[in-house]
Design a binder for these strands. Structure first.
Length: 204
DNA sequence: GCATTAATGATAA
DNA sequence: TTATCATTAATGC
């Protein structure tokens, strides 16, 4: 079966609809909780994390995105405010298209509309799979669930050599576990051949 | 040197 | 068993 990957929208096309290039510094806010979604965002270069904070002020990361990926798209089809924040985690260049123009683009390009549908569906599918693993008490199950989810995003589906480009702290914030638990668990998992660690980098 | 990230040990819940 | 706290080592700028 041919998988429909999450194709980014052609940058030229976006620009022909009036998209702008925006740059963000590390740790700069892109949008915050309760903002009204007004733009389609696609990453040209850099990285973005989507998170929020619980009552104790602890961070929970919902997602970390890289080059070529879009975010916040689901909010453009509904009238709801953001429930999360988005931050640049490194110097980042985005291409940004206002909501109305995005809708125009989608209306005039049914094929792209279908791709966006497939993309959103795929994300939902893997998110649900991950949620299933996340309620597990076993730290290794949560980590595996997260890694499977992350791998589903990447184009390069090289089995066994997917490089997890997250710090252990970020993995902890994504799984709701402590960083020490992550460190100790992934070492155990390496011994069980569930993943590889080379040069402190995690390969799954 | 300083900041960040990773690793490890001790102890409490 | 995991969280928490403290400490130390390694890494990158």
């Amino acid at each position: 079966m041919k998988t429909i990957s999450c194709m980014k929208i052609d940058e030229q096309l976006l620009q022909s609809y009036g998209a702008e290039i925006k740059t963000y510094k590390e740790k700069e806010l892109i949008f915050r909780e309760d903002d009204s979604p007004n733009f389609y965002y696609q990453i040209i270069d850099g990285g973005v994390k989507v998170n929020n904070f619980n009552d104790d002020g602890k961070e929970f990361i919902h997602n970390i995105l890289g080059k070529g990926q879009s975010f916040g798209d689901a909010h453009l089809f509904i009238e709801k405010k953001y429930t999360v924040n988005a931050f640049a985690i490194k110097p980042t260049t985005l291409i940004v298209l206002p909501k109305k123009k995005f809708i125009n683009l989608v209306e005039e390009h049914p094929k792209i509309s279908l791709e966006i549908n497939a993309c959103l569906s795929l994300r939902l599918y893997f998110k649900m799979k991950m949620m299933h693993d996340m309620v597990s008490q076993q730290p290794s199950a949560r980590i595996l669930g997260l890694f499977n989810y992350l791998r589903s995003y990447t184009d390069c589906e090289d089995q066994h050599s997917f490089n997890v480009q997250l710090t252990r702290q970020q993995i902890a914030d994504l799984t709701g576990l402590r960083v020490e638990t992550i460190i100790r668990t992934i070492k155990k998992m390496e011994k069980e051949n569930l993943l590889k660690i080379e040069d402190r980098k995690i390969y799954y």
